[in-house]
Design a protein around this nucleic acid. Structure first.
Lengths: 202, 202
DNA sequence: CGAAAACTGACAGTGCACTATCACTTGCGA
DNA sequence: TCGCAAGTGATAGTGCACTGTCAGTTTTCG
């Protein structure tokens, strides 16, 4: 797991320290989660590993589970989608923005991303929290599709399309971690997202 | 919420009592969950509402969260799929088994099903547990597809197809509860599953 | 009916997430 | 450099999920 998380863009010493502490806590937490599982890891252990007091942990994260809620990556997909040229066909836009936003993170933090995704699928405690993110992502994609096609974001067909996209995305990730992260995630993505648009041939 | 849950097929008085208690606990739990939310409901409250002792609660359900793990419906989809004629094309088989297995439950227990699905999407505590069921269902469908097509169940394309199917299914359910359960679930299902096979036209 | 087995409730106790308080330290602006 | 605000740690305490034990009751079976 690398050292970087959010590039501290503020200059004050205080702010920098806070950012470092936040990262330290999160890294310690993920390391312990990976070692012994989410449920089996206590807040006290995380605090000790991060060399802060339990009180401080709760000052940074209102609850234990908030350590895994994806502040950083959250909305990345939606942003990438919004950034695609407006005249690009939806199919392309979705595919590209997914592979793009992933490519960035992959380069920057391959190890951390891998651990994170792996735990999302393997650790029962963490897996449980994944549903929320999935639903959020679905809604974001649905909104993007709606805007691009001029359809309503509440349109069930639009929402189904978004759901299918996210589902395929999750499945590809799951496969990727099952294979130890050795395969080319971008290629897997690109191929299987394409299948969705051609229709399931079964 | 109706009184029925699992038709007690055993004859001994003991067995019948146990089944009744189990149902009573579950119903009480769901009623309270619907009233005040999963997290805000304590085991003691459930026990009191079900007129048993807290000890007894834990004898029936090893943990609070097990009250919502779907013993009854679990695997219903997989079973329905397996029961479809082997020569039926996969597309049809999946669509039919989904609408079929749902139709049965709908007739038997519309209210309970509605509450259950609604909470799955609205209550954060319960929603968290839905991911596991989703993954299980995905794997079951993937297995069924694999068997029917002679492909490998671990084949990523097969798993993506299964994931997309389940995702659409979930989205339809979500829409259904958003609309208060008034729309024709089977029709929604049938239509949107079909779209998946024709390919997302966007 | 009588003994064995299953089931239940009451009670005491543990571990952990989370809160509240307060004295102490550290960075910041004047 | 001084005063203030922000951040930290220690401590004590709460609520709830969950465990273990034991005595009393109910069901079953010979």
């Amino acid at each position: 797991m690398s050292t970087r998380e959010t590039p501290a863009k503020t200059c004050g010493l205080r702010e920098r320290k806070k950012a470092k502490t936040r990262v330290a806590i999160r890294q310690a937490a993920y390391r312990l989660f990976a070692e012994r599982g989410y449920e089996a890891t206590t807040v006290d252990q995380i605090a000790e590993a991060a060399e802060v007091s339990p009180s401080t942990f709760f000052r940074y994260f209102p609850a234990k589970e908030d350590v895994i809620l994806s502040d950083e990556y959250d909305g990345a997909l939606a942003d990438a989608l919004a950034a695609r040229p407006a005249d690009e066909p939806v199919v392309q836009a979705v595919r590209r923005s997914m592979t793009e936003s992933f490519g960035q993170v992959l380069e920057a933090d391959r190890e951390e991303l891998f651990t994170r995704i792996r735990l999302t699928f393997t650790d029962p405690g963490i897996r449980a929290r994944a549903m929320d993110e999935q639903l959020r992502n679905q809604d974001a994609v649905a909104a993007a599709i709606a805007e691009r096609t001029g359809r309503d974001a509440a349109d069930l067909e639009v929402r189904c399309a978004a759901a299918a996209l996210i589902a395929v995305s999750m499945t590809v990730m799951r496969h990727w971690v099952d294979g130890g992260g050795t395969e080319d995630l971008i290629a897997l993505y690109d191929h299987h997202l394409g299948i969705l648009f051609e229709g399931l041939r079964l």
